[in-house]
Write a protein that binds this DNA or RNA. Structure first.
Ligand SMILES: [Mn+2]
Ligand SMILES: [Mn+2]
Ligand SMILES: [Zn+2]
Ligand SMILES: [Zn+2]
Lengths: 138, 138
DNA sequence: TAAGTTAATGCAACAATGTTGCAAAATATT
DNA sequence: AATATTTTGCAACATTGTTGCATTAACTTA
């Protein structure tokens, strides 16, 4: 699966650089979501902080990863598993944050329910964040 | 309705100070949610930035206001209309963010749907954030 | 209501997070 | 291999949030 990384970058018309390869690899290996700080920790002093910010931003724009809204207002990112493309995300799954271990999960098979809005409101996106105890901590 | 402010503070065993009165008043008057910056703007140089942070924190702890998770990761606050008490919030309503005007609404009458989680996951809280166009911008 | 007690505020200093411009380095193209 | 393009690292800055502590304001009780 490791060589899929270069292909993912190519497919998205991104030049293949050390930081992009390494950061994308971290996401592929990760079982849950990653925060900026996680990436900074796991890659040591290898890359500049700014490079990580820019790489994450690029990946989001290309539809390689998506951001996860959290109740504690810390930004997290996870691989897009659906057919997301540049400027067009389709990550309509529920997210789960464990209060115990802090891990954030993409529940890819739990789709977000439809919400009936009051008259006049038009939805374009719905985010659902569930928190509680995860399968490892329950 | 203005004298309800002092009573709300008393009921929550908070001493009545200028900053608390003014900030609570801003929430009562506001039709939507407020960010820290909104409060800072609307109160001018009247209060120190730190005081605003501490007041908001106190109000959240007491169950007077609740935080709203947002997709763009900016903290917003709104009055609790349900029976929230110290350390016990019951704001199980859907939130709406307008992409046009930026306003955040508490849809008090739209309750969050139940979500069926995979085996092993235990929910304690569910947040639903819908974004799109609000009644004024649609 | 005045004195004593308790709690909140303002200030300064700091920490964390994120952004921008630009020269140097790496990647892609020919 | 030479050139053109993109990305990176660095420095500097902006924003957001936190903490300790002396001053000030609010509350309590006499
Ligand atoms: Mn996800
Ligand atoms: Mn609300
Ligand atoms: Zn867990
Ligand atoms: Zn609007």
């Amino acid at each position: 699966m490791l060589h899929g990384i270069n292909e993912t970058l190519k497919r998205n018309q991104l030049s293949i650089t050390d930081s992009r390869k390494k950061i994308l690899e971290l996401f592929v290996r990760a079982s849950g979501a990653l925060a900026h700080a996680d990436i900074e920790n796991q890659s040591g002093t290898e890359f500049d902080r700014v490079t990580i910010y820019r790489t994450l931003q690029t990946f989001v724009e290309k539809g390689i990863i998506h951001t996860i809204p959290t109740a504690d207002n810390s930004v997290r990112y996870a691989l897009c598993k659906d057919a997301c493309t540049e400027g067009h995300h389709h990550d309509d799954h529920v997210h789960f944050m464990c209060d115990d271990c802090g891990k954030t999960y993409c529940l890819d098979h739990v789709t977000v329910p439809a919400v009936a809005l009051p008259k006049g409101f038009q939805a374009t996106q719905t985010d659902v964040i569930v928190s509680g105890k995860c399968m490892n901590c329950a």
